[in-house]
Design a protein around this nucleic acid. Structure first.
Lengths: 146, 146
DNA sequence: GGTAAGCCTGTACCTGGGTACCGGATGCAA
DNA sequence: TTGCATCCGGTACCCAGGTACAGGCTTACC
């Protein structure tokens, strides 16, 4: 089952091999993650074979918490052969972001635990003693009382 | 500066006291978080005074990580005077969700640390020895190789 | 050359939590 | 009664990351 060489992979082939929707390929092209591929005489896209690997890299970067804009930028600086301590720099920043998110979630978790421990039974008319709900000040923008 | 009693608070008053946009009140009404208030002869909404407190409760619940749909449901079961061990139950489930999110973030953090430690310099053409990027299998749906 | 699968562009839609704008009606104080 | 602030309903828009559909063209295979 050797596929015929037409000078590149077709959208459907790339999409299937990368485990991605066909529409997503065109979406990534619009977003600048994929450069515009060659075309057949009839106007069909013909992707270079390493496109599949590139898509896997993109998916890996997404799993690392980078947004598509960030991935596009990283790929772009890579293409331009910048001096590029860029990736490490970005990774360090991402780690800080993640630490912050974990800290926030931990705070919220603590508040939820309080709600459970106090045996709150209602958001608005909780009958439990020392109900913590009115005092939930997590991340409240101002210190105003409830 | 005693405001005249017209049988309820106007949207602008509620919005200001709750620190919320006026549009948000109508949005919450559509979403079922606020019941439809009484109206003036001219059709203007007149909210009962405890609406401000209710909005604070909603905001607190949001900060705990509940979606608006979940808050609406919790308020609804509260209104219907269900037996309602509901809130506790939901809180316990939320805690489990949060634990999962923290675990995911921790995994990602580990992978990012690897990238930083290995001194990766490019997403696609990293020149570092033992580059971990191709092996980033975090949360990959299938075990297929990169 | 026929036919079906695949691809093309363009546009609209989805989730979640709102925000903004429009033209017209109301509320309220002077 | 006049004038201005506020409110009304309806609709469109924002973010991110896609997905879906319509109507028409190309490619591939027999």
């Amino acid at each position: 089952m050797i596929s015929p060489d037409r000078g590149g992979l077709r959208t459907g082939e790339v999409a299937e091999q990368a485990g991605v929707n066909v529409q997503t390929l065109r979406y990534y092209e619009r977003r600048g993650l994929l450069t515009e591929p060659a075309r057949s005489n009839g106007g069909h896209r013909l992707y270079p074979p390493d496109t599949v690997a590139l898509l896997n890299v993109i998916k890996a970067a997404q799993r690392l918490g980078f947004t598509l804009d960030e991935v596009a930028e990283l790929l772009d600086t890579g293409r331009r052969r910048h001096p590029a301590p860029d990736l490490r720099q970005r990774a360090v920043e991402k780690i800080a972001e993640i630490d912050q998110r974990i800290a926030d979630l931990t705070t919220i978790r603590g508040a939820l635990t309080e709600v459970v421990d106090a045996r709150c039974d209602s958001l608005t008319n909780c009958t439990c003693a020392d109900c913590p709900i009115p005092f939930l000040t997590i991340g409240r923008p101002d210190g105003e009382p409830t």
